[in-house]
C-alpha cells in the first residue's frame, strides 16, 4: 500500500509543479532562436503556423474531448480574409490578422453552436459538413480567386512602421505570434475554466449534475480554438503571400488530426512536435510525390497501433511527467 500511494503521489506532484514544463518551454524558445541560422526560415515559419493550428485543435480534442473534423474552415477562412484585407483593402498586417481572427471566431461561434448539440461522431460529421460548405463557398465566391486563390498578398509594414518583407523581421514576428498563441492555450488549460473543461472531458453527465452548463463551456472552448486556428491561418497567409483552397480543404482538417495524434493528444508540447514531424516529412519527402500520403498513412497506423499516446505522451510516460 505504501509503495502504491508513493507512486500515485509522484505522478500527481508532477501535474502540480510543472518545472520540467518551464524547462521544455525554454528549450523550445532557444531552438527557435537558433533555428533560422541553420534552417530555411520560411520552412520554420510554416512549421510554427501549423504547430499553432495543431495546438488550437488539441485544445478541443485533448482537453474537452471534442473531435472537430472541420478545423480547416477556421484556418482557411481567416487566411482568405487576411489576404483580402491586406491586398484589396490595403490594411496593415496586424489589422488584416485581426480581421481574419475575428472572422474565424464568428465562424466558430456559428459552427460550434450547431455542432455541440450532438455528441461523438455526429459532432465530427456536422463540423465536417459545415467546413465543406465553406470550401464550396470559397471555390465559388468572387473575392477568393477560386482555383487560383489570392496571390501576391503584400506583407506590408507592421503598425505601418516595421517592414515585414525582411525575412528575419518576419521570422521574429511569426515567432512572437506563435509563442503568444501557445501561452494563451497553456493558460487556458491551467485556468479555472480549463479545470471545468477537463471535468467535462472526464465525465460530462457528472459535470452537468454538479450544475455546470456544459454546452456553454464547450462553445467558449470551440470559439477559442477556432480563433486561434484563424490566427495560425492568417499568419501563414502573410508568410506565403498566398491564400488558397488547400487551407479550407477537408484534407487539411485530416492533417491537423494527424499532427495532434502523432505528437500526443492532450499534451502541451505534443501538437508542436507533431507539426514538426509531419511538415518535415512533407518537405523532405516531397520528391516522392503521391507517396508522401502513403507514408503519412503508415505513420497514422503505427501511431494508433504502437504508440497511442504520441511522441510527447510516450515521453511523458517514460519520464513520469506530463509534457
Amino acid at each position: 500500500m505504501a509503495s502504491a500511494t508513493g507512486q500515485i503521489g509522484t505522478a500527481a506532484a508532477a501535474s502540480r509543479a510543472p518545472v520540467h514544463q518551464y524547462v521544455a518551454f525554454a528549450v523550445m524558445v532557444l531552438l527557435l532562436v537558433a533555428a533560422p541560422f541553420a534552417i530555411y526560415p520560411i520552412f520554420i515559419m510554416k512549421v510554427l503556423c501549423f504547430a499553432l493550428f495543431a495546438c488550437a485543435f488539441n485544445l478541443l480534442i485533448g482537453y474537452v474531448g471534442l473531435l472537430s473534423f472541420g478545423h480547416a474552415a477556421f484556418l482557411g477562412a481567416a487566411g482568405y480574409i487576411t489576404g483580402h484585407a491586406a491586398k484589396v483593402w490595403g490594411l496593415t498586417p496586424e489589422l488584416a490578422i485581426v480581421a481574419g481572427v475575428a472572422t474565424s471566431a464568428v465562424l466558430g461561434l456559428v459552427v460550434g453552436a450547431l455542432a455541440i448539440r450532438r455528441q461523438g461522431i455526429y459532432f465530427a460529421m456536422i463540423t465536417l459538413a459545415l467546413a465543406q460548405m465553406l470550401y464550396f463557398f470559397c471555390l465559388q465566391a468572387p473575392f477568393t480567386g477560386g482555383e487560383d486563390g489570392i496571390q501576391a498578398i503584400p506583407r506590408g509594414r507592421l503598425f505601418g512602421l516595421i517592414d515585414l518583407s525582411d525575412m528575419m523581421t518576419l521570422y521574429v514576428v511569426v515567432v512572437i505570434i506563435f509563442l503568444a498563441g501557445f501561452l494563451l492555450i497553456y493558460r487556458t488549460i491551467h485556468s479555472p475554466f480549463g479545470q471545468v473543461l477537463k471535468a467535462i472531458r472526464e465525465n460530462e453527465p457528472r459535470a452537468v449534475s454538479l450544475g455546470y452548463d456544459v454546452d456553454r463551456y464547450k462553445l467558449v472552448a470551440f470559439v477559442l480554438s477556432a480563433a486561434l486556428s484563424g490566427l495560425a491561418g492568417a499568419t501563414k497567409v502573410l508568410v506565403f503571400q498566398l491564400a488558397s483552397l488547400t487551407d479550407v480543404h477537408w484534407a487539411m482538417s485530416g492533417e491537423v488530426v494527424l499532427m495532434a495524434l502523432v505528437g500526443g493528444l492532450g499534451t502541451i508540447f505534443g501538437p508542436v512536435a507533431g507539426a514538426v514531424v509531419i511538415i518535415s516529412l512533407q518537405n523532405y519527402l516531397a520528391q516522392l510525390g503521391a507517396w508522401v500520403t502513403v507514408v503519412q498513412g503508415v505513420i497514422f497506423v503505427l501511431c494508433v497501433l504502437a504508440f497511442r499516446r504520441g511522441i510527447m505522451g510516450e515521453l511523458g510516460r517514460l519520464l513520469k511527467r506530463p509534457f
Binding site: 500527481a12 501535474s15 494563451l184 493558460r187 487556458t188 491551467h190 485556468s191 479555472p192 475554466f193 480549463g194 479545470q195 471545468v196 477537463k198 471535468a199 472526464e202 465525465n203 453527465p205 457528472r206 459535470a207 449534475s209 454538479l210 450544475g211 455546470y212 452548463d213 456553454r216 463551456y217 467558449v220 477559442l224
Partner: peptide, 30 residues
C-alpha cells in the same frame, strides 16, 4: 462518477468552484 484524470482534491474542487458561478475566465491562473 469521478473525474478520472484529475486528482481527488481537484475532483472536490470542481464542485467547490461552482460557487464562482458559470465562469469562463480562461485568462486567469489556476
Amino acid at each position: 462518477a469521478v473525474f478520472g484524470h484529475l486528482t481527488a482534491l481537484e475532483n472536490v474542487r470542481i464542485a467547490l468552484q461552482r460557487q464562482r458561478g458559470q465562469s469562463f475566465d480562461f485568462w486567469r491562473s489556476e
